[in-house]
């Protein structure tokens, strides 16, 4: 009992108050012969960023939509990030706990780190986007004659390649960290459940042939290399359930 003085304990309690205020459940006691706890409506319904909150300004949204459209283009082979409305997915993610890095460890000191040490930016994703997008448009205006969203597809691809390969650097944030995060979020928005605002009408799933959230493939285990033609279904149901 020597480890915690009264002052330390008080400090712990204060920190808990701020850091854990949002915690959904308080300490609880179970067992003692009471059996498995259960209460009606205790199912944890999806809540991850399904709100319609927005983070991006109009210009930011235009830029992100344009970036996503080059990362997963709409072309003769099928729909892309635009049809999937990936920008809405990212906008909602940035407005939620993910954009704030609420579940990430964000205490300093901050250092650049080696390539094996992972994300080390002092900025949570939403701020990283905000700072990087401003510098991106500045760069495009001075070097290519217009904001990123106004450039030709060829110019946009050249700029994105510059970010990806570390040829374009920003002053306040790492352009490469930003590019990697946008690419990650774009793939998420193309393939996540439509619940989150992207993959609209399951275009991403239908494009690659993923049947979604069906949860029972016992009838197909013996497919032996044949295609399994199944319409996709999402957590919101439809349209696979009702189609013959």
């Amino acid at each position: 009992m020597t480890h915690y003085t009264r002052r330390q304990t008080l400090r712990l309690m204060l920190m808990a108050g701020t850091a854990l205020a949002a915690s959904r459940v308080l300490a609880a006691e179970y067992g003692r012969g009471a059996g498995m706890p259960w209460s009606p409506m205790s199912g944890e319904v999806p809540y991850y960023g399904t709100g319609a909150d927005r983070f991006f300004s109009r210009d930011e949204r235009l830029a992100v939509a344009a970036i996503c459209a080059r990362l997963i283009p709409s072309d003769e082979d099928g729909p892309g990030a635009t049809e999937a409305d990936v920008v809405t997915f990212i906008d909602r993610q940035m407005a939620g706990f993910y954009g704030r890095a609420q579940h990430w460890y964000m205490q300093g000191p901050f250092a650049e780190g080696t390539s094996t040490q992972g994300y080390q930016s002092e900025h949570p994703p939403a701020m990283l986007y905000r700072l990087a997008l401003a510098e991106l448009d500045d760069y495009c205006r001075s070097q290519r004659g217009g904001a990123f969203a106004e450039l030709s597809e060829e110019d946009q691809d050249a700029v994105l390649t510059g970010l990806d390969e570390g040829e374009i650097a920003f002053e306040r944030v790492s352009a490469k960290t930003f590019f990697d995060l946008v690419l990650e979020n774009t793939v998420e928005g193309f393939f996540a459940d439509p619940l989150y605002g992207g993959n609209r009408d399951m275009v991403g799933w239908r494009y690659v042939g993923f049947p979604g959230t069906r949860y029972d493939y016992r009838d197909f285990v013996g497919h032996n290399g044949a295609a399994i033609p199944l319409e996709p279904v999402s957590l919101q149901g439809r349209p696979g359930w009702s189609q013959p």
């Binding site: 205790s42 999806p46 991850y48 890095a101 998420e188 989150y196 959230t213 957590l235």
Partner: peptide
């Protein structure tokens, strides 16, 4: 029934990419 029922357990974004059930790094 409360945390991974068949009506919402199959959510790749929530459980893997947003670390729905893992230790919170924060």
């Amino acid at each position: 029934p409360s945390d991974f029922a068949t009506t919402f357990a199959q959510d790749e974004l929530r459980y893997y990419w947003r670390h729905g059930m893992f230790q919170e790094a924060s």
